[in-house]
Amino acid sequence: MTSAGDNLGLARCGLVREAHKPSRVTSSIGGGTVLSEPELSDRFKAALLELKAEPHSATRRENTPDILRSVVEGHQANRVVVANLPAELRAMVSGALKGRSVQFLEDLPSKDVLGACAAAEVGVTWAEFAIAEDGAIVEVAHDDMVRLAASLPIVHVVLLPAGRLVRDVGEAMTVVGGILRASGPGERPTVTFISGPSRTGDIELRLLYGVHGPHSLHVVLLDWYVGR
């Protein structure tokens, strides 16, 4: 299986800014305004809150396990599935959730993946980047286990490097277009923009969360992690 991130072509697209180098804004797009990094990140968090997603700032490697643990505990969850994480983060996640059932989907026989996701209460996955003003995280999946882990459990926890932000959907499409064009026809990933937990207005127009997908979306922003 191809692991996400290997052939993303993000660097080549040149639109994703790295927050840990605030002075270096990588490009301007279509003549549009390029926001300074702290502004983008603030906007992203504000947009997440507005969408009823919960942002968490993991400022240091050391406090990241605590954040994960408290999110899972907050939902009184025991069964966790994990997919698509960079290899070096896996140990940290399993350490943080010690004492619970944590299944790394990459390690399961493929026939067990669907069942594991259907039984889990929490799915932990990875986002390649995010769209600041729309509060959307961008999931790049080369295997549907990622999408199952992110859609079947009632809680979705997504990790991403804090500074990998584009401004809006226009910029995001340029990046994604680059990714899809760069991948061979039989290798194109499925890319999903996710902005908030699953919702509906179908009953008397009342906004309700958690229809078929997760009730809760936690976005853990890793300040200390630059990406694979």
Partner: peptide
């Protein structure tokens, strides 16, 4: 933006 905007090009494997 709609909550889930999926950009699909092919069927992916599972596991």
């Amino acid at each position: 933006m709609t909550v889930y905007v999926s950009l699909l090009s092919r069927r992916l494997p599972v596991g």
